[in-house]
Simulated scan of single mutants.
Amino acid sequence: MAAFDHAVAPAYRWPIDDLAGLAHEAEFVEVGRMLREPREGERFRRGHLLLRRQ
C-alpha cells in the first residue's frame, strides 16, 4: 500500500497481488482480474479484481 496526494481525502494505491492476497485471507476467491497501464492524463496503473465469497 502506498499513500498518494489526493485533494479531498487520504487515498492509497494497493498492489493488486497484495490486495488479492488479503481477499483470499478473508475467504474470497478470485474470479478474474484486469490491470492496465495508465492512459494519457492518468498517473497510475488501474487494476480491478472480481471476487466471490467462498
Rank of each mutant, 00 (worst) to 15 (best):
G47F: 00
G32M: 12
H6L: 03
Y12V: 13
W14V: 14
F44W: 15
R52H: 11
E27S: 10
G47V: 01
M1Q: 05
P38M: 05
Q54L: 10
L51F: 14
L19T: 01
R46L: 08
A20C: 03
R33W: 06
R36D: 00
A26W: 12
M34K: 13
L51C: 04
L35W: 01
L35K: 06
R33G: 02
R46W: 07
H24E: 11
G47L: 06
G41L: 10
M34W: 15
E25V: 13
H24V: 15
F4G: 00
L50Y: 09
I16Q: 05
D18T: 11
Y12E: 07
E25N: 13
P10C: 02
D18V: 13
D18S: 14
R45W: 06
E27G: 14
A23Y: 10
W14N: 03
L50Q: 02
I16F: 08
R46V: 10
A23H: 02
R45Q: 11
D5C: 03
R36W: 11
G41F: 10
A11L: 09
R45S: 15
V31G: 08
F4I: 04
R53D: 02
P15C: 07
P38G: 06
H24T: 14
R13T: 04
F44I: 07
V29C: 08
Y12D: 02
F44P: 02
M1H: 08
A26D: 06
A2L: 10
G21L: 11
R33K: 10
D18Y: 12
W14M: 08
P10G: 01
A3G: 02
P10V: 00
A3E: 03
L49D: 09
L51W: 09
V29G: 07
A23R: 07
A9D: 02
D5W: 09
F28N: 00
L50T: 03
G47K: 05
W14P: 00
R45L: 11
E37Q: 12
F44V: 06
R52G: 12
A3N: 02
A7D: 09
L22N: 08
P38W: 11
R46E: 10
M34G: 04
L19P: 01
G21W: 12
E42L: 07
D5R: 04
R13M: 09
V31Y: 13
R52E: 01
R39L: 06
V8R: 08
R45A: 10
G32C: 04
R39P: 00
R46T: 14
P38A: 08
R13I: 14
E40K: 14
R45K: 15
A20D: 06
